[in-house]
Design a binder for these strands. Structure first.
Lengths: 136, 136
DNA sequence: ACTATTCCTACCAAATTAATATGATATAAA
DNA sequence: TTTATATCATATTAATTTGGTAGGAATAGT
């Protein structure tokens, strides 16, 4: 299961995409419209900014807007930033690979083979962008 | 990510399948061969027995063997027993459905649509049986 | 009786999740 | 210049989940 953080992050990006008219949108507005706890949302927005997905404008009339082109922001990318690995077991993850301590031979591991397959099916779907998502 | 419990459970079933000759196999043997902490494994075995995947034989020379035909035990089923939902968000789960409190309209939710798609791609792979898995 | 085993309940420590609290800093508008 | 509106940063917290461990009762083959 994904965390609420990820879900809130994706909802936030979709909201920004659907409501952007050049002016930044404040955390308060996003929070109210998407029913995301305000302070929790602030943390998420900070993480998205630090990872160069969004940029922020401080002070009155401030808020958040895209830094990266929403056409190039994928769901997979957001999951990786906020939650971590896409793969269901660590030994098949590209970005967060970890060896299983209990594994004697990774290459012949049947479980690994299955989860490589699974990851390969999942990735094309999660590589859809925010703009793709809006069109669904 | 799946829990270690699930991974241990699948490994256990594979081990039983590959080493079954009619006689039950003890938790100790499984634990040593698959490097699964003994007491932790006991818990997992109990869960598999309670869910009618395995049956147990008590006393000396006792152990575990299949109750359900390994041909009909799927990875998805094991995940559901041990971890819970397959779907990555609760509102698209068949067996563990939960409404998102922050959601205003589930039918039009773009995120939901994406994760329905994802689940639909994942299921055929996870519906493979223990015997399928052994053949990989 | 002895030994090997399952069975059962409870406990525990560390990590993760989902926030909340407090306050500093920046900026536009009054 | 004050005020209201914002972001920014760090720390704290409560609840849940994860990955075990402990101790012992019950069962059965030798």
């Amino acid at each position: 299961m994904l965390s609420k953080r990820v879900k809130y992050a994706i909802k936030t990006l979709l909201f920004l995409y659907e409501n952007s008219d050049g002016k930044p949108i404040s955390a308060k507005i996003i929070s109210e419209n998407e029913k995301i706890p305000y302070k929790f949302l602030e943390n998420i927005l900070r993480e998205l900014r630090q990872n160069k997905i969004l940029k922020s404008v401080r002070g009155a009339e401030g808020g958040y807007k895209f830094l990266k082109d929403p056409n190039e922001i994928t769901v997979a990318e957001i999951i990786r930033i906020v939650d971590g690995p896409i793969a269901l077991i660590p030994c098949v993850s590209f970005y967060f690979y970890e060896k299983c301590e209990d594994c004697t031979d990774e290459v012949s591991c049947k479980i690994r083979k299955l989860f490589v397959q699974l990851r390969n099916e999942m990735l094309p779907i999660l590589n859809k962008s925010i703009t793709d998502l809006e069109k669904l």
